[in-house]
């Protein structure tokens, strides 16, 4: 794994890394992938993948609390709010 590969993964994962972090992580992740690649030595069964012990856990799609009951508590945690909204930067238009 090269520095460019790590830089690409970091972009996908939305994490800005310094060059020294990229080099360090490239080394670690190469080692770890070397170790976990041992999984390739196991011959997998042809058995189709089973669903777990539980499936199709359903409930009625109905409101289960009063409108606005949690609004204030949730908005209070937001880094930037505007009235009843969480505010984010605009995503359309020219990039600065």
């Amino acid at each position: 794994m090269k520095r460019e590969d790590i830089a690409h993964l970091a972009t996908l994962a939305r994490i800005k890394l310094t060059e020294s972090e990229q080099d360090h992580l490239a080394e670690n992740i190469t080692d770890i992938l070397g170790y976990v690649s041992a999984i390739g030595d196991i011959t997998a069964t042809e058995k189709p993948k089973e669903i777990g012990a539980l499936y199709n856990v359903m409930r009625e799609d109905v409101p289960n609390h009063e409108p606005g009951e949690y609004t204030e508590r949730i908005l209070a945690a937001a880094p930037v709010r505007k009235g009843q909204y969480v505010e984010v930067k605009k995503i359309l238009g020219e990039r600065k």
């Binding site: 994490i15 800005k16 949730i74 945690a77 937001a78 880094p79 969480v86 984010v88 995503i91 600065k96």
Partner: peptide, 22 residues
């Protein structure tokens, strides 16, 4: 960095994500 937790302000929304998570 949008709904709760640390928020680090960047040049645009993508930059906010990248810096907050860094």
């Amino acid at each position: 960095g949008v709904r709760y937790g640390l928020h680090v302000d960047g040049a645009d929304l993508l930059d906010d994500y990248m810096l907050t998570r860094a």
